[in-house]
Design a protein around this nucleic acid. Structure first.
Lengths: 131, 131
DNA sequence: TACTATTATTTGTATATACAACTATTTAAA
DNA sequence: TTTAAATAGTTGTATATACAAATAATAGTA
C-alpha cells in the first residue's frame, strides 16, 4: 500500500508536470497561485489548510512565487495577506488551460469512470487517515 | 487527482513512518533492506526496477544503509552486488513485524475490503501510467 | 496593567527523490 | 583490433516537502 500510493503519486506528479510545463510552474505552485488569484488577500494559514500542506511549505511556495512576481505579501500585525500581481491575473486563463490539459491527459489514459471511482476512493481514504 | 494522490501518499508515508519507527529506518530503506536480505547479491539495477525508483535514488539508499552497517557493496567490473551484513540478518524478524504493524494499522483505519479495493485500483492505475 | 497562553508566520535544517552529466566497463560492428 | 554503442552505477545539483525552533503579535486572565 505504501509503495503503491507512493509510486502512484510519483507518476501522477510526472504527468502533471507535463501539463503545467507551458506556464513553467510546478502543479503545486500553480494551484496555490490559482487560489490566490481567485481569493485575493488569502492568508497562508488558509492556503495551508486548503492544500493540505504544512505552513512552512506554504511559506516556501509563496516565496518562490513572489520571486517570479506573481504574488505579493502584505503583513500587518500577525496576519499576512497574499495578493496576485497583474502578471498573475494575466496568466489565469493559461493556468486553467493547464488544469484542463491535465484532466484530459489522465482521463485519456485511465478512462473516465475508473479514474473517477479511484479519485473517490482516494478521497475517502485520505479523509480517514489522521493528519 | 494530482492533489489527492499526493495528499494520500503523504498521509500514507506518515502512517508508515510510525510503523517503522522501532527499527529506526524509513519505509523505503527498510523495504530495500528486506529485498537485499531475501536476495543476497541483488544488483542496484534490479532494486531500482522492483522499487520503481531511479538508479540514483537507489544508490543513495544503499549508501545510507552501508553507513549503518546493514549492507555492503562488492563491485566487480561494471556490476555491483549488494549483500546484507549479519547485523541486517539479525534485524529481519523485526522488519517483518513492522510490515505487519503497518498492515494492521491501515486495515484498522480503513477496513479490509475497502482498502483492498483501493489498493487494486491504485495498482491498475499506476500500471497504465507511463514511466 | 502585567503575565501567560495562543495564534500566525518564518527560518534553519533535514529527507526523499529526481534529472542530467559523468565514469567505467562490456559488447558489437567495422 | 580499433572504434562505437550500450549498460551499470555514481555524483552533482535541484525540488518538494517536513519538523522543530524562533519570532512576533494578539487575546485572555489574574
Amino acid at each position: 500500500m505504501y509503495f503503491s500510493s507512493n509510486a502512484l503519486a510519483r507518476k501522477m506528479e510526472k504527468l502533471a508536470n507535463e501539463s503545467w510545463k507551458k506556464v513553467d510552474l510546478s502543479p503545486s505552485h500553480a494551484y496555490l497561485l490559482m487560489i490566490a488569484i481567485e481569493d485575493p488577500g488569502v492568508q497562508p494559514g488558509t492556503l495551508s489548510n486548503e492544500m493540505q500542506l504544512t505552513p512552512s511549505t506554504v511559506t516556501r511556495f509563496i516565496e518562490k512565487l513572489e520571486e517570479k512576481k506573481f504574488l505579493v505579501r502584505i503583513t500587518e500585525g500577525k496576519i499576512t495577506n497574499v495578493y496576485p500581481t497583474p502578471k498573475a491575473k494575466k496568466l489565469f486563463p493559461k493556468l486553467k488551460e493547464c488544469v484542463n490539459d491535465f484532466f484530459k491527459a489522465y482521463a485519456k489514459i485511465l478512462g473516465k469512470d475508473e479514474s473517477f471511482e479511484l479519485l473517490n476512493g482516494m478521497h475517502k481514504l485520505a479523509d480517514k487517515l489522521p493528519d
